Computed example of a mutant assay.
Amino acid sequence: MAYDRTAMLKLLRPAMTRILTPLGRALVGRGIGPDAVTAIGTLGTVVSALLFFPMGQLTVGALVITVFVLFDLLDGVVARLGGKGGSTWGAFLDSTLDRVADAAIFAGLILYFISRHDTLMAAVTLACLIAGALVSYAKARAEGLGLTADVGLAERPERLVVALVAACFSGLGVPYILPAGMWLLAAASLFTVGQRVWIVYQQTRER
Score class of each variant (00 low, 15 high):
R99N: 05
G144M: 13
T6M: 14
F106N: 04
G181Q: 01
Y3C: 03
M121Y: 08
T59P: 06
T6P: 10
R159Y: 04
D4K: 01
F92M: 11
V151I: 15
G181S: 06
L109W: 00
D75H: 09
V37S: 11
T119F: 14
L178G: 00
A163K: 11
L81H: 08
T119Q: 13
I105M: 14
A15F: 13
G24K: 14
L126M: 09
T45V: 15
T59L: 14
V174N: 01
V200Y: 10
T88F: 09
F191R: 09
R99T: 12
S48F: 12
A91W: 05
L70M: 12
Y112G: 03
E155S: 07
L73Y: 09
P54N: 13
G194F: 02
V100P: 02
G90C: 10
T204S: 09
I177N: 01
T204K: 13
Q203W: 07
R25I: 14
R141S: 11
V67K: 02
L73D: 03
K139S: 02
A26W: 13
D98N: 05
F52Y: 12
I32F: 05
L126S: 03
A101F: 05
I40V: 15
L27P: 01
R99H: 09
G173T: 00
T96P: 08
A140G: 09
I40A: 12
G173Y: 02
L58M: 03
L147N: 01
M8W: 13
S95P: 09
A2R: 12
L23Y: 13
G41E: 07
L185I: 09
A187T: 03
P179C: 10
R13G: 02
P22G: 08
V67G: 11
G90V: 03
L81M: 09
F113W: 10
T204Q: 11
T42A: 15
I32L: 08
V135K: 02
M1C: 05
G41W: 01
I199P: 04
I19W: 15
G41Q: 05
A142I: 06
A131W: 00
F53A: 04
L134T: 01
G56P: 07
A138R: 06
C168I: 14
V162C: 07
G108M: 07
A103T: 13
D72G: 06
G76R: 09
Y112K: 03
L70F: 11
L153P: 03
G171N: 02
R159I: 07
L145S: 12
A2W: 11
L81A: 13
T96S: 10
S170K: 00
W183E: 00
R207I: 11
L126Q: 02
A166V: 12
L43T: 15
D102L: 06
L190R: 01
V46R: 12
D150L: 11
L12W: 01
G90Q: 05
S87A: 15
Y201T: 06
M16G: 06
T59A: 15
Q203V: 01
A127R: 05
I105Q: 07
V135A: 03
T59I: 12
A79Y: 12
L63A: 15
G194I: 11
D4G: 03
E158T: 14
A91D: 10
